[in-house]
Amino acid sequence: MGLIREIPDFPKNGILFQDITPLLSNAQAFNVVISHMANSSSEFDYVAGMEARGFIFAASIANQSNRGFIPIRKSGKLPAETHSETYNLEYGADTLEIHKDACAAPSQVLIVDDVLATGGTACAAIRLIEKTGATVQKLVFLLELEELKGRGKILQQFPHMDIESLKKIQ
């Protein structure tokens, strides 16, 4: 994946940011990525994506798979009643929310995001989906930053979670 560039010290010193904008601007490469992510599972009713870059992938996968899209947004951005979860990032803390009526049992949800880093965002998203009564079927990421051990954090809290990353970065 030569279409992902590394930007040092962004958004703050010590962070090596993975810039996916070159991938997004290449229609053929983006389509290949979306197709692979969409075909990683057929056992889901909805695709959930986290704000902001996760929306790009999750909405595209939902469209290609003819499934519903569930936005998981930052605090205060959704208009109806929400569930919320606060979590730690590799460079701070944040809160995510989901509409209480976004989905329900027995729905199966595919959670999609661009990067698996510390696992905090993914764990918050899983807890949010579970609060609706639905079940997370799988997590799919474009990139996984292995040195931050996010996969381990997720599996520690959700031992049977199915996790796929298209590219692992050491």
Rank of each mutant, 00 (worst) to 15 (best):
A80R: 13
E97K: 00
Q28I: 15
G120V: 01
G150D: 04
P159K: 03
F158E: 06
S35P: 11
F10T: 03
I169A: 10
F44T: 14
Q170R: 12
P159D: 06
R151H: 04
V115K: 13
L139I: 00
F17Y: 01
V109Q: 04
L24M: 01
S84V: 11
T121A: 13
E130D: 12
Q18K: 15
D101K: 07
T118W: 08
F57C: 11
A93H: 13
S25T: 15
K138I: 00
I56M: 09
L3R: 08
L23Y: 05
E43A: 14
K12Y: 01
L16T: 09
K77M: 12
A48F: 07
A117Q: 04
S65A: 13
S35K: 08
E6L: 13
I20L: 05
Y87T: 00
P79M: 05
L16I: 11
M50V: 14
T21D: 06
F57N: 07
E6T: 13
K138V: 00
L78M: 04
L24D: 02
T95V: 09
Q157P: 06
L24T: 03
G120R: 04
Y91Q: 04
K138E: 07
L145C: 01
T95E: 08
E43W: 14
L155W: 05
L128C: 05
E144K: 02
Q137R: 08
I129Y: 05
T118Q: 11
K153S: 12
C123F: 02
A122I: 02
A62K: 00
L96R: 08
Q157E: 09
I98P: 10
N39D: 14
L110H: 03
N63Y: 15
K131M: 12
M50Q: 05
V112P: 09
N39H: 14
A80Q: 15
G2A: 13
G76Q: 00
G120W: 03
A93K: 11
I72A: 08
T118P: 06
A80D: 15
N39K: 14
L143S: 04
I111H: 02
L23C: 09
E164I: 10
K100N: 12
L24R: 04
A48S: 10
E90V: 11
E90L: 09
P79R: 06
V109H: 01
A134S: 09
G49S: 01
C103G: 08
F55C: 12
N13H: 06
D101C: 12
F55A: 15
K168Y: 03
N66E: 15
E164D: 15
E51L: 05
P79H: 09
N13E: 10
I70Q: 08
A27C: 11
V112K: 05
F55P: 09
S107D: 12
I98G: 12
T132F: 03
F141Q: 04
P11F: 01
S42L: 15
Y91A: 14
G68K: 00
Q108P: 04
A122Y: 07
F158W: 05
Q157G: 03
K12G: 03
K167V: 15
F57D: 08
M1Y: 13
V136R: 06
D162R: 05
I129C: 10
K12F: 07
K167L: 15
V33G: 00
E85W: 08
Y46F: 14
L24G: 08
V112Q: 02
D114M: 04
I111S: 10
F44H: 11
E43F: 14
S40A: 15
